[in-house]
Design a protein around this nucleic acid. Structure first.
Lengths: 248, 248
DNA sequence: CGGGGAGTTGAATGCAGTCAACAAATGTGG
DNA sequence: CCACATTTGTTGACTGCATTCAACTCCCCG
């Protein structure tokens, strides 16, 4: 990890602001909210941001790159809780509680960091920040429930289709162009660890989806020619999914 | 649903206060926070509190009884997201967003209700409320991740043991006596719907747990003679689970 | 050019689902 | 209070999705 504390970019010009922590804050509040921020930090692929049991005193906004949040299980495997994309708030918590999961950079990443102890006082001066935080945790909770539902009830094909489509939709919402492909830096084993499957079975199912022409993935790229078709496999309404993934 | 608006009990004397919405608030703040509350309400077993897609303008604290939160699935089945116990905050959200799940009273229940539009202004006057809300959503999120992990990775026996032990531990933390049995008003089908199993398989596994002497359940009561033994089956540390279930 | 991670394939096993029937408990109306 | 209906719980046989284990290929990186 190397810090690049100086020359902090201006939040007003930040490309991902509207989907980040301050997305709900009006521009007039930004200057005060920005006081929260202390620095930017970079991590390289594979580095831990924090570990289960840690009590970090900073929160982060992911500026670019992918991060996985996961729990280590007793048998040595891991459960990926979610894939974190640019704009996500990470590691925000009430002071002194310890993390229930770990976080690793999947790619090289840049983070904006915010000392946790400043949040309390900033909320006193700026109650809108409280609303922004509550709104973010609401969306995170909804996504978690949606994931829980998919993992609980459906076959491997549905789970994999849902995960791929969700990530695709969110990545598309972050981009300004109108491509129908995204960077997709995760392995089949990552997918397996997120969905409670084996990488072998994930492989077989992905081949099936490829043969049906529903996805093209290789070279760390994912292309979905027909989102509606994949939504049907995923047992979700595409529109509902988009609302869930665009939010915040 | 019948309202019993008058003669609201005093929050200071509320038996479940320390585990409810205001558990984190100091007594000196209670009077102001209590202004949030508008009324108490009662529902009978089987009644809906709200439905997926609704935009209720009230939040609730469950005063007594059990509630299930669930999503309806396209095939007519349902995914139970969580069992809500006394002290839980229900239906708290930013105004104007719609619910992603429904809620039904599993037993006859009593709720304290709070108009959502009052939260915003109360937070301005009482920033401590913001911390309480953030703290609650943090715990809810952690429990959801724990559930996700259990459902994703483990066999039916582990899932069922985990669910039963979690509910047992939380119910015990709400009681003042030192019994080792709890009211357990849920059916095997409820368990199945919460864990993504069939009620038939739940039945077989429960019989197995009974034969091993790990649980006694009948007549809407659950008894766990040896919590450590069941924790071992559940693949969790009993202490960790207790911290997660006691919180808030 | 060699090593390691990621992806691919096949065969055998096993956990949980499905279908069908029945038993026990609970609730309802006459 | 009994007769009946409904819900909840129980049992058995068969099926199928996903795992396990093992071997092998491909590709990237040093």
């Amino acid at each position: 990890m190397k810090n690049t504390t100086r020359n902090l970019p201006n939040c007003k010009q930040c490309k991902i602001r509207q989907i980040g922590l301050f997305g709900e804050l009006e521009a007039i509040h930004l200057d005060r909210a920005r006081e929260l921020r202390s620095s930017q930090a970079s991590y390289t692929s594979g580095e831990y941001l924090y570990r289960e049991g840690d009590k970090p005193n900073k929160a982060y906004t992911l500026f670019n790159g992918w991060v996985i949040l996961f729990k280590n299980l007793e048998d040595g495997s891991r459960q990926i809780l979610r894939f974190s994309l640019p704009g996500d708030l990470l590691c925000f918590k009430t002071n002194k509680t310890s993390m229930d999961h770990s976080a690793i950079a999947l790619t090289d990443i840049t983070l904006c960091t915010f000392p946790l102890d400043k949040f309390k006082e900033t909320i006193s001066k700026l109650p809108e920040l409280s609303n922004a935080l509550i709104s973010i945790s609401e969306v995170t909770q909804k996504r978690c429930y949606a994931t829980l539902t998919t993992i609980s009830k459906y076959t491997a094909e549905v789970k994999i289709a849902y995960l791929m489509l969700s990530l695709f939709v969110r990545m598309r919402s972050l981009a300004s162009d109108d491509d129908n492909a995204i960077d997709f830096p995760i392995t089949q084993e990552d997918i397996a660890d997120a969905l409670g499957l084996t990488s072998i079975h994930v492989n077989r199912v992905i081949q099936g989806l490829r043969k049906k022409g529903l996805i093209n993935c290789d070279n760390k790229k994912l292309e979905i020619p027909d989102q509606e078709a994949l939504a049907k496999i995923s047992k979700v309404e595409l529109q509902t999914l988009k609302e869930l993934m665009y939010a915040v």
